[in-house]
Design a protein around this nucleic acid. Structure first.
Lengths: 135, 135
DNA sequence: TACAACCACTTGCAAATATAAAGTGGTTTT
DNA sequence: AAAACCACTTTATATTTGCAAGTGGTTGTA
């Protein structure tokens, strides 16, 4: 019943309170395994995490692979489509840093830095993410 | 239970499928009245709309005012905090235009244009929104 | 002046979704 | 051989959503 407005496409996929936090964990905190996501500060529940990982994989924003060094483990990676979410996340972070009184120092500094040189910062981070996640 | 990561602050406010569509209607489609939002293409329900408008007002992202020309009507405006959501919305729009096969021509063109000159485009739109919504 | 239509919502209820807690079947570590 | 760990499922409860109808006023029309 929803329109073809492009905004809509994105919101249908990650318009909720959890999905972008998983992407953030992949992007900024180097998390790659199920229980690394589970132990994020926000306390995502295992039901929601499993649901969102499946959805993100279906949308080809992340990729699941078996860890060759540990048969039980599954490594999650960002795809290009996932890496391209970076500017969205950065912009939400910058907006929040501006308007939230209480933000963590760690991320605050991070966003303050990137704000200084937005385009350059995004490009550098994208290159780094491509190296870690693609191939 | 959630962390102080700045991303979190934003997601707690507009991390759902509807809130940013209301902001979009204010920004791009010039909607200012309750039943203009109600009649958006996506078919938001009146319960959700009332809830989100109240939340956005509480967060000082929008402002309610009585229409001086029509006692029954209430005009909604963006605040500066609301206008500053523009880069987020633009970035979601650009990402979606890239990855969605099916997007409306109207918005597609819009985002294609702005992509060409991102910073300049954002600044121009922000100026326009300030003139319409602030004061 | 009567009456219908319109205004911004609110209410009640069923259905869908989110959450917490516990459990599963295998693997790896001790 | 036992305990801990792995990525999830399952079950049961709580919350959110969507739909339809209603509210108390205001405005437009006959």
């Amino acid at each position: 019943m929803r329109s073809d407005c492009p905004l809509n496409y994105g919101l249908e996929i990650f318009g909720d309170k959890w999905t972008l936090l998983i992407i953030r964990d992949l992007m900024f905190f180097g998390k790659r395994y199920y229980n690394e996501f589970l132990s994020s500060n926000e306390g995502i529940s295992t039901t929601v995490l499993a649901d969102r990982l499946a959805l993100l994989e279906k949308q080809k924003i992340i990729k699941k692979q078996k860890d060759p060094e540990h048969k039980q483990k599954i490594v999650y990676s960002l795809t290009q489509k996932g890496i391209d979410l970076l500017p969205i996340i950065i912009n939400i972070g910058m907006w929040s840093s501006t308007y939230s009184k209480k933000v963590s120092d760690k991320m605050e500094c991070y966003f303050a830095d990137i704000r200084k040189n937005f385009e350059k910062g995004i490009a550098a981070l994208k290159a780094e993410l491509s190296a870690t996640h693609l191939e």
